[in-house]
Design a binder for these strands. Sequence first.
DNA 1: CCTGGTTGGG
Length: 863
Amino acid sequence: MKDDIICLEKEREALLKFKDGLIDEYGQLSSWGNQKDKEDCCKWRGIICDNLTNHIIQLDLNGASGRLRGNISAQLLEIQHLKHLNLSFNDFNYSKIPQFIGSLGRLQYLDLSDSYFSGEIPHHLGNLSELQFLGLGTCSNALTSTNLDWLSRIHSLRYLNLGHVNLTMATNWLQTISKLIQLKVLDLSECDLPTVLPPLPSTFNASNSLYQLDLFGNNLSSSCIFHWFVNFSSSLSYINLDFNKLQGPIPDDIGNLLSLSHLSLIDNQLEGEIPISLGNLSSLSYLDLSFNQLIGIVPHLALSSSLRHLSLYRNMFNGIVTQSIGSLSKLEYLNLGSNHFEDIITESHFLNLSQLQLLDLSHNQGISFDFSLGWNPPFQSSRVFLAGCKVGPHFPTWLRTQTTLYSLDISNAGILDTFPSWLWELSPNLGHNLGHLNLSHNNFHGVLQDFSSKFSTNFYSIDLSFNHFSGSLPILPPDASFLHFSNNKFSGPITNLCNETIYDLEYLDLSNNLLSGQLPNCFANLQLDILNLAHNNFSGNIPSVSIRMSLHLQNNSFSGEIPTSLSDFATLAFIDLSRNKLTGKISTWVGDSFINLVFLSLRSNEFFGSIPSNLCYLTHLQVLDLSLNNISGAIPKCLNNLIAMVQEVDYGMYHIPNLSGGSESARGGSESANVMWKRKEREYINTLPLVKLVDLSSNNLVGNIPAEITSLVMLVGLNLSRNNLSGILPANIGRLRSLDFLDLSRNHFSGGIPIGVSQLDQLGVLDLSYNNLSGKIPQNIHLQTFDASAFEGNPDLCGLPLNKTCPGDEIPQDPKIIGNANGMKDPNEEEDKLISDGFYITMAIGFVFGFWGVCGTLVFNNS
DNA sequence: CCTGGTTGGG
């Protein structure tokens, strides 16, 4: 009926032109149109018209169910009575916020957040004097405001979100904000706020009504900001200052904020004790002080009886855990992990904690437990972390009462016990089941029973590594993604691995066990990030397995050739096939395929043929070990293309993400590699050296050393010994200034020792023995520290430290005074320069889980 | 608006 149409013709025309500027892929505006049945624009989606005047007062085109794209037409200005405009969560392709929005003078609500706007926020928005709500935040916008003066004209503002707007230049932000005396909610998180704050305006008063303050991630220091917000004593309820640089103690007057319910100060540089006044805050329900340097004991916290969330994780708290926390009957989340608490935890600590869902006491070496045998806790927790506490010698039986347990980490807790098989069946009929289990680094022993029928399908990770489990590998849970079974005594074939659907497996570590036999067929179906079968006795061919990042098969009895299927995985960073019985030529696809390869060891196998020059495409390669094979031919001249050995490491290059998903109990696993270093095999577990090595020793290589090799100036070790190399040594070998280890022994090199050898200041081991070198050894102080054995077996070589005088020289000293007999410096003195100098950089094959820090064993030292 | 994290939505 015509009478029902209340839409004003002029506004309807404007809306249709506005729609014309938009690309509506998801049909958000399908109710908008010219058709007869769509005549009343007041019924269009997102439109609200005023009951009396019929003017459009609200336009809400939030794109949450499908982003609109395109341009915002200036036709919007025809809708002059608009009070509420929401264009959030659309995609305006990083265009600027139109200045004309500042002319919609009746606007009370403006939300342009998360909509791909960029550039300077137009100061025209300051004309919107009626505005109460302004949302311009979120990271999909790339907005800047060099000066916030425009904001101070919007006196009516109650809610302001400028999160992620770049305010680097807005040095007056605090003064501006202080003028907004109606403000209730302020979000300036991740605004890159200037950290040097000018003094507060003298007119500043505390009579305003700020309720929620979010300054997350701004590098703010304590000096001004605490003083500022402590003035909102009666109103402030929520404070988030996570990821700033607050120093010194938490000020006492924080206890004046009597309405405070949420205080989060994660990852600052706070020191000293928690102020006693915090206990005054009877409304406090959320307190997170994680990642600071706070000390002391915390008895008064127990006064905050409203607490639901309490985290003191990663601080330096010491002393006892007050038993009065047992009175915090609303506590759901209790994290005291990674501190220096020393206490015996008893049942009374949990007296009234009937709501507790998460308990983390891990990494407090001084914490032990004294529960009665039949203790039935008042809570049903889903996540329990007791790693690094004194839990043992027996597995804690009280956990049997926890029928909703999902994550359990009791690693490194001194447990000497058999596997508690009831863990698999805590409450299978309720749909709950353990998803993450970490029992590593204990003394568990015995054979694992077949528990396959007990699993539900939501298992995610199991870490049983570093125990003494024996017998066959058990039938594994289906759907598990991370299995860490390394460093046990599992033995025999691993056919059980294929008895279940294991297609979700991403990480399999069976290294350092007693496993044997051929790899079962199901390996051909796996798609793994990391496979580590090192240090077992597996035999047979390597199946065509899919590995995305890391393959460790070293020290087994694998035979046959490297499967060509591996060439599909350009992301592979580590390949260690050393100490097997592999054979064949080193195929050209090794160099062509693995463009991300950092580590390649084929050491001690039966490879033959020449070194393909394609290997020089491996520009990220740091370790190339082809030693102890039957490789012939010349050393490729192109080695100078291995630029990772030429340049300093770009650490970012190795940030290989997310191997084990999101649980605190599922942290990473082991990443190991075997490296020959100074004639000793070393295994690096969880670490790989920054050391850059080329080891081609013990092959049948011929020809000379290509001069290009002296371009590898970051090379720390070069071993070409025990080949049939000949010719003179490169004249500019002195360029290899990082060399700590140089072994060219047992070849047929001739000519003099280049003076450059004496320039290798870092050299700890030198061996030039058993060649045809001639002439006088450079009489340099450093070279003279090496033993004569480093030069022996060269009939025409003379001069110190050899006991052979060069023609026309004086009789040399007794060489025994200078060095010992094996060509190395005194081992006690030398130790390992790389380690003592902090030269080994732990390499990340792990990931930081949320902001809860780096995962323990997979530290990558970014500093 | 709510939420919560080196931002993301309904």
